[in-house]
Amino acid sequence: MTAERGWAQAHRWVILAVLVALAIAGIVTYRWAQRNAEADRKADQLTTELRAAGLRVPASHDTITNVLGADGGVICADPASAMRKAIVDTQLVNGAASVGQRPIIGEVDLVTGTVTVLEVYCPDKVDAFRDMVADYQLDTVSNN
Score class of each variant (00 low, 15 high):
Trp32Phe: 15
Leu92Gly: 04
Ala43Gly: 11
Asp89Ile: 01
Arg56Asp: 12
Asn36Ile: 10
Arg41Phe: 10
Thr114Cys: 04
Ala53Trp: 05
Ile64Asp: 03
Gly113Ile: 06
Pro103Gln: 07
Val108Pro: 00
Asn36Asp: 14
Thr47Met: 15
Ala97Pro: 00
Thr48Asp: 08
Gly73Tyr: 00
Gly73Ile: 00
Arg5Tyr: 14
Thr140Gly: 13
Gly72Arg: 02
Ile24Leu: 05
Gly69Leu: 03
Ala70Asn: 05
Val20His: 07
Leu68Gln: 07
Asn143Val: 13
Thr140Lys: 15
Ala25Cys: 03
Val93Glu: 06
Val20Trp: 06
Ile15Ser: 03
Ala10His: 03
Arg84Ile: 15
Arg31Tyr: 15
Ala21Gly: 12
Thr29Met: 00
Asn143Trp: 09
Val111Gln: 03
Leu22Asn: 11
Asn36Tyr: 02
Thr140Ser: 15
Gly106Tyr: 02
Arg51Asn: 09
Leu118Tyr: 07
Arg102Pro: 15
Met132Phe: 14
His11Cys: 09
Val120Tyr: 01
Ser142Trp: 15
Asn144Val: 00
Val14Arg: 01
Ala97Leu: 13
Gln91Arg: 13
Gln9Thr: 07
Ser142Val: 03
Asp139Gln: 09
Leu68Val: 06
Thr112Ser: 09
Val57Met: 06
Ala134His: 11
Phe129Ala: 08
Thr48Val: 11
Val108Asn: 00
Met1Gly: 15
Asp40Cys: 02
Asp40Thr: 14
Glu119Asp: 11
Ala52Phe: 03
Ile105Thr: 12
Arg56Ala: 08
